[in-house]
Amino acid sequence: MTRAVLDTGERHSVAELEDLAYELRRKLLLLCGTYEGAVHIGGDLSVADILTALFHHGLRIDPNDIANPARDRFVLSKGHAAVCMYIAMSMRGFFSYDEIVATYGQLDSAYGMHPCKVQLPGVECSTGSLGHGLPLAVGMALSGRARGELHRVVTLLGDGETGEGSVWEAAMAGRSQKLGNLVAFVDRNRQLMTSFAEERVIFEPYADKWRAFGWNVVEIDGHDMGQLVAAIDALPSPDSDLPTVVICETVKGKGVDFMERNLAWHAGSLGADDLERALAALDASRASNASENDTEAQEAR
């Protein structure tokens, strides 16, 4: 059995994906600087690279044919990162960024603080209650398998929500049903809302827990676009027997120095001065990364 043909659009290089991730972070900050309420900016910034890699490289989707049965399905389990997903989708062509900015968080807006499939076509699953995304993805993957379809069901979890028992029930079910079409990405930023993760729940040895449940485990730097692309490209075939978890080591608030690993920036808003400071920090981080890449390239010669 082969996967159905689906036009997934332009293929990007790693460097181009890095540029898209920078653009996504910049748009996140601009929205955070214009919206009057709090944005879950810390966790949005930690998943920006992952969502860029998925929407511009990994997911077989067509924004002009959102009901195509051959499409991959994406479930944002950490639903409070919705605005990051919205912007990633807008950059992929589902809708415009200006639409998000105009109504984000308002009553009856399609762009709520958590995603709603009823309000926003292209969203596969309404999420928000933590610990529910993987169980929902298991059901969707099992349904696809029963119909003989070869799409993938991909979900993105926060590491904090994997303290929920429902996650591990779903992990056991995914392995028991031999759902090789199921892929979980974990945003392992090691922070909860008001504390660092290991202060409240002992997650380590984290990867070994997934291995004990019979999953194929991949561990990467979730901010290294090359590693993200390689992990996606190496995923087993959807008709294989083992579900895969890609554990992405990340930094909450990544790219903005005063937000990185800062518990105060789980959620917040940016005034004019803070926005200018945040954008400058993002540019400085990008320049630093570019310099490091140039040095590594010269040393490799």
Rank of each mutant, 00 (worst) to 15 (best):
G9Y: 09
H12I: 01
L17Q: 05
L24S: 00
R26M: 09
R26L: 12
R26A: 07
E36P: 00
G37M: 08
G43P: 05
G43S: 11
L45V: 01
S46H: 09
V47A: 06
I50Y: 05
L51K: 01
T52L: 07
T52M: 05
A53Q: 09
F55G: 04
H57Q: 11
G58Q: 10
L59F: 13
I61A: 05
D62Q: 07
D65H: 10
A70E: 12
R73E: 13
V75A: 04
V75M: 10
S77A: 11
S77R: 02
V83T: 13
A88L: 12
A88N: 10
S90N: 12
S96I: 01
E99M: 11
A102Y: 05
Y104E: 08
D108V: 07
H114C: 09
H114K: 08
Q119H: 14
L120A: 06
P121F: 12
E124P: 02
C125T: 15
S129G: 06
L130P: 06
G133S: 06
M140T: 05
A141W: 12
G144E: 11
V154C: 06
L157R: 01
E161P: 08
T162S: 13
T162R: 06
S166I: 09
S166G: 08
V167C: 15
E169K: 06
A171D: 08
M172P: 06
Q177W: 15
L182H: 11
A184E: 13
D187M: 09
A197T: 13
R200G: 00
Y206A: 01
G214H: 03
I220W: 00
G222Y: 00
D224W: 04
D233A: 10
S237A: 15
P238M: 10
S240I: 03
S240H: 03
V245E: 02
V246T: 04
V246D: 00
T250A: 05
V251I: 15
E260M: 09
N262T: 09
L263Q: 10
W265C: 00
L270I: 04
L270H: 03
L279E: 03
A281E: 13
L282W: 03
S285E: 11
S285L: 01
N289F: 11
S291P: 00
E296K: 15
E296L: 15
E299T: 08
